[in-house]
């Protein structure tokens, strides 16, 4: 999704995640066997990584990642740690991390607990070029495995994507 600041990209993502009731229309989820209960579909089927990383400043990156992975029903964080180059950050308190490092810790739960739909709000904004590439590779793998990504972006993502203009 592309669009001006304030065009409603984040609102649409939050509506898909069920955090915001849509002002018109409905949002439904479908599995191979037809329509799914929206609550179950959201609880088991999607990840949302927004502007705020949802990490507690006083806890270590490892504690937060382990919690987020367990909360989302995943377990093994090793692959996520490798893919996002977090090994040297794990034992630091979140308050000591830069914005880009925090974002990488937040994105790691996408890999630690596999889910079909990723809702990403400006996922790349604070990342440096190397890590953008790393996250792009993770996205490519997710899409190749049949996953879906809905992302609000200003710069194009490094994956083949269809762009939707929001608030045009």
């Amino acid at each position: 999704m592309v669009g001006r600041n304030g065009a409603g990209k984040t609102s649409l993502l939050r509506a898909i995640a069920g955090l915001l009731p849509p002002s018109a229309g409905t949002i439904g989820f479908e599995g191979p066997d037809g329509a799914l209960d929206p609550h179950d579909a959201r609880a088991a089927g999607l990840h949302m990584v927004g502007h705020h990383d949802g990490l507690k400043p006083g806890r270590t990156a490892r504690e937060e990642l382990l919690f987020q992975a367990a909360w989302a029903g995943g377990g093994d964080i090793d692959e996520a740690v490798r893919a996002l180059d977090l090994i040297r950050l794990l034992d630091l308190e979140v308050r000591r991390l830069s914005a880009g490092q925090r974002r990488r810790v937040a994105l790691a739960r996408l890999l630690a607990a596999p889910r079909a739909l990723w809702l990403l709000d400006e996922p790349m904004a604070p990342l440096d070029a190397d890590h953008r590439r790393g996250v792009g590779e993770a996205m490519t793998r997710h899409l190749a495995d049949g996953g879906m990504i809905v992302a609000a972006v200003h710069d194009p993502l490094p994956v083949p994507a269809r762009s939707v203009q929001v608030g045009a």
Binding site: R14, A17, G18, L19, R42, A43, A44, L46, M48, G50, H51, H52, D53, G54, L55, K56, P57, Q68, W71, A72, G73
Partner: peptide, 16 residues
Amino acid sequence: ERDYEDGALDLLAVGP
């Protein structure tokens, strides 16, 4: 309030 400000409440609201 902390969870609300840092976005963790979003995570908790869309959970199992």
